[in-house]
Write a protein that binds this DNA or RNA. Structure first.
Lengths: 348, 348
DNA sequence: GCAGTTAATTGGATCGTTCCAAATTTGTCA
DNA sequence: TGACAAATTTGGAACGATCCAATTAACTGC
């Protein structure tokens, strides 16, 4: 009996109707009589039938209810949260996702995209690996499959985008540090030749200028966007002739590293040095000291990206759309302001 | 021209051969003449043909090169790393994965499994959501699809399993703390009614007994398996009449929380209190102090789980297999031993 | 030059579903 | 009761690939 899968034809035979009727029942069509419907449904349960979406998608009209998601680094909790947000809305919209990690490799990314395409995805959301070119997306876009790029952009690609407002976020953060009395404020961590980095440094620089302060390049210390990168950056910063008294960090991971490095140097973050992160990952709230950071709400961003993609899939025709997701500064302890009182929020 | 996708028939017509020949070329069959092969391949590139795996999988023999992965909490970096490990081997084996987050909900997990099944996965790897029952997997297993449960087990389910050696790992960790001179060693964090928790507490208890020490229930403080849970646990531990001087934590996240809590109480982890974690997530190495922890190597575990699943898929017939992945204690600073010298490794 | 191989190629038929047009049943009303 | 409409049901013919058996083309060796 277990030989071969159960198909609509088996159901039809067992229920004494035609396969067409079974198909109508499967699609919950109002055309079919209640009695018949009940009988067919009973048989379906009885025989343990499983719908074969692959077969259904074969007919040219159908679009597949599968989407692709590729992130550049799933081990980074920012991207993991992003993926979780997407997963949530995709799941409740009745979609399944191919979810892959490009690990920052354009080759792997290309392979994954090709593979997903062969499997017939209805759309793609991805945070591009460093070095992604418009050409990598060309065929996908040309075939009319909606694509949403998140977090990072791909120059020249005709795809929808969803970025956070890096410039405004960095500016607000630095303004806050200036308001707290800091005069030498560094920018620590991150990889320099990326758009995100450039935008955040730009915000940092303009806020300093606005406050009549200097923003020399020596205060911008690029390393990597990780905890280890944060440690390295603060170590170098403290060796400067005129060391900073506060820093905006490229992201939360780097900010945690900066806190680690400060402690290793005998300084207490928040009290002896103002630290501000970027992203607002979950641990930011529970860390000690709680991290003051620019909240990007990665899950929310993931959800918005997913909704955007679904909208485009349903719309049929793809009209690239660029969304900038606003951010807000969440003041906690690490900047030296929130001291004892509970988390306070400043709208950006 | 963009109306409808390009199919083997289009290629065949354009290249002046039959669709069967095109099919043979696609499968790199040695039967076809080199000249013909070149001509067909050229036409394929020229027309921008994309292979339709859905159609190919329709034929009963074919198995799908899609597998399913479900994790209970992707925002936890342990599971994110696990997923990345799986992704790596699946990708190089030419598979794509549906990867979903059950968020600890058995209902969502059930839905996702059903959906994946309809899409024709060749196998499933998952870390069961709390409360998963054997019945949830019954239909999948009955249809002969290999299933591998990782990290947590599902009582009564006939599936393959891959767990880390929680018992031995906990025992080694506590032995090490005893060797460092600690006499009151707590077990902090985690959710009490889980197998993993029970096994680790068991190891803790036996190591204490072995060292002639007491292991009262008051020293086992269950909260949650998170950073916040660690903070809460150490707070309660320090209020005990006879507070502990060291602790084995349920996992690294909790251990970081314990460090945070210690600092908030004016104690320096490593110097004033021995802290040992469990998992060895990436941040464990770069944290300050570097975390002494039982290394589970989540990525490696993910890779092994993926290899096990692939083996079963290729084997055809499914014979459930139980693998216990060995662990080893990685001594760093947080336990008070590694003090100044670099990370030292003790094999378990 | 021809039988006997070997190498290459090729029409169906098939996988499990959907969809259309046509057929059947049921219901309504004069 | 018969004509007509509405409600249900139903055979095929797709969809895009694979695979088998059968055909055709290209080589042997004598």
């Amino acid at each position: 009996m277990n030989k071969g899968r159960v198909t609509v034809i088996d159901i039809a035979r067992a229920a004494g109707v035609s396969k067409s009727t079974v198909s109508l029942v499967l699609q919950a069509s109002p055309l079919v009589n209640e009695v018949t419907r009940a009988k067919v449904n009973a048989t379906i349960r009885e025989l343990g039938y499983v719908y074969n979406r692959g077969a259904a998608n074969l007919r040219q009209s159908a679009s597949s209810r599968i989407i692709g998601i590729i992130v550049n680094d799933l081990t980074n909790s920012f991207f993991a949260e992003l993926a979780v947000g997407m997963d949530m809305v995709m799941q409740s919209a009745g979609y399944v996702q191919f979810l892959s990690n490009s690990a920052e490799s354009v080759d792997r990314q290309r392979e994954v995209i090709a593979s997903m395409r062969e499997h017939g995805i209805a759309g793609l959301i991805f945070s591009p690996a460093r070095g992604t070119e418009a050409a990598d997306l060309k065929p996908l876009v040309a075939s009319g499959i909606p694509v949403v790029a998140v977090v990072r952009n791909v120059v020249g690609a005709k795809v929808s985008t969803l970025f956070s407002d890096n410039y405004a976020g960095a500016k607000d953060a630095v303004r806050h540090l200036i308001a707290l009395g800091h005069r030498r404020i560094a920018f620590l961590g991150g990889i320099s030749n990326t758009t995100v980095f450039t935008e955040r440094v730009q915000g940092w620089r303009e806020a300093l200028a606005e406050g009549g302060l200097e923003g020399p390049n020596s205060l911008v210390i690029a390393t990597t966007a990780s905890r280890a990168g944060g440690v390295a950056a603060i170590e170098r910063a403290l060796l400067l002739p005129e060391p900073p008294t506060a820093a905006l960090c490229f992201n939360d991971a780097a900010a945690f590293g900066v806190c680690d490095g400060l402690r290793a140097a005998g300084k207490e973050p928040g009290r002896d040095f103002g630290v501000v992160g970027f992203d607002d990952v979950i641990e930011a709230e529970t860390a000690v000291p709680a991290l003051t950071t620019v909240s990007v709400d990665p899950q929310g961003m993931g959800r918005r990206a997913a909704q955007l993609l679904l909208k485009q899939i349903n719309a049929g025709r793809v009209e690239p759309e660029a969304i900038v997701s606003s951010v807000r500064l969440v003041v906690r302890q690490s900047c030296g302001a929130g001291s004892s009182d509970k988390t306070r929020r400043i709208s950006a």
